[in-house]
Each structure stands twice: as structure tokens, then as C-alpha cells.
């Protein structure tokens, strides 16, 4: 193999290695990319942060059914649910649902609930002015709480959506929180 060809090979290999390195990083970049994409389009059912209820018109003609689902993740001993299982609401109207949680265990536990809306594209139109999912909850052994959640549905909700489901998955994040605290100490 002559010198010139070796040079050529080296150049090509370096270019290919750059593609390979780039694609490896791209795999990690996909995570923020997907998240940004879903934030803009609101298609993966993740609701946004706290909304304000100001000058919202109420559309009395439309009725939307909203159902509440609660699930408890593995390793979480709490009881967790909503007082009502479903509501019929008008878009634009501010509604309140009470959720309850109880820690029946003998130790202090921190919980974090993660909301998800189905169908996914409805997530953009579900505005929460108050939600326990914005913070973590710390319950002492045996403690019980009622947690209000206030929301309204945007009047721009697409016509074909007449029923949506809001689900909360409750996670036990005690270890993660304590580990993070340990790390900052």
C-alpha cells in the first residue's frame, strides 16, 4: 500500500469516526430533542406547569367528561386516590377535585406524582392553577392529607375530544431526595 493511499484512508477513517462519535452523542441528544418537540406540540400527554385563571370565557354549550386515574408505583405504600372518579365540565370553567393520600407505614415517606393526559394532544388544553403534582409531598408515619387540584379546560380544545383522562402515577422518591441532600451536604 503506498503512502498516498494511506493518507486517503486516514482522511476517510477520520471522517467516518466523526460520524460515529456524532451519532453516539446524538442518541443522548435525542432525549432533550424529543422533550422540546413534545413541549411545543404537547403530544406526549405531559401537562405544563402552573396556569393562571384570568378572564376565561366559559363555553356553556360544550360538555367534556374528564376522568381521574391514580396509580401507585412499586415500592410506594401510600393509599392514593381522588374523591370523584369523573366529572362533566364546561370548557373555561374552573373546577376543583380533591385527592387524598395516606401514609400507612411506620416511616416518613416523600411522594411525587407524575401527571399524564390521554389523548396526548389534550394535554396542551388542560390548565392547572393548583396541583399537588407541582411539589413533592412529605407524609409522616400514619399521616393523611387531602390535596385539592384546580383546573380548567381551554375553550380551544379540539372539537373531536369529548372525553379525556388525567392520570397520576405516584412514586416513592424518599431515597432519591435523601441521596440528593447527602450530595449537597
Amino acid at each position: 500500500m503506498n503512502e498516498q493511499m494511506q493518507q486517503q484512508n486516514k482522511k476517510l477513517i477520520l471522517r467516518l469516526m466523526a460520524i460515529i462519535g456524532g451519532m453516539f452523542l446524538f442518541a443522548f441528544a435525542l432525549i432533550p430533542l424529543y422533550n422540546v418537540f413534545c413541549d411545543i406540540t404537547g403530544i406526549n400527554g405531559k401537562t405544563r406547569g402552573q396556569a393562571l385563571y384570568q378572564n376565561v370565557e366559559i363555553d356553556k354549550k360544550r360538555v367534556v367528561t374528564i376522568e381521574f386515574l391514580t396509580n401507585i408505583n412499586r415500592g410506594m405504600p401510600w393509599a392514593f386516590g381522588s374523591k370523584v372518579k369523573s366529572m362533566e365540565v364546561h370548557p373555561g370553567e374552573l373546577n376543583e377535585v380533591i385527592f387524598y393520600a395516606k401514609n400507612p407505614s411506620k416511616s416518613e415517606i416523600i411522594g411525587q406524582s407524575v401527571p399524564s393526559v390521554s389523548p396526548g394532544e389534550a394535554a396542551l388544553y388542560l390548565n392547572k392553577t393548583e396541583c399537588f403534582c407541582f411539589d413533592q409531598q412529605k407524609l409522616m408515619a400514619g399521616e393523611e392529607v387531602e390535596m385539592p387540584m384546580k383546573f380548567y379546560i381551554d375553550t380551544d380544545l379540539p372539537e373531536d375530544i369529548t372525553r379525556l383522562t388525567l392520570s397520576y402515577q405516584l412514586f416513592n422518591v424518599t431515597d432519591a431526595v435523601n441521596a440528593a441532600k447527602g450530595a449537597t451536604k
Binding site: G21, G22, M23, F24, L25, F26, A27, F28
Partner: peptide, 21 residues
């Protein structure tokens, strides 16, 4: 060369999810 690095990235994320928090 386009997709095998993505697979490598995926299993690396699995590994860090499993063991490195």
C-alpha cells in the same frame, strides 16, 4: 455507522439508569 452508535448510546443509558442513579 449511523445507527450502531445510537444502540451503544441506548445501552449506555440503560447501564447508568441501572447503576449510576
Amino acid at each position: 455507522i449511523m445507527v450502531m452508535p445510537v444502540l451503544a448510546g441506548t445501552v449506555t443509558m440503560m447501564l447508568t439508569d441501572r447503576h449510576f442513579g
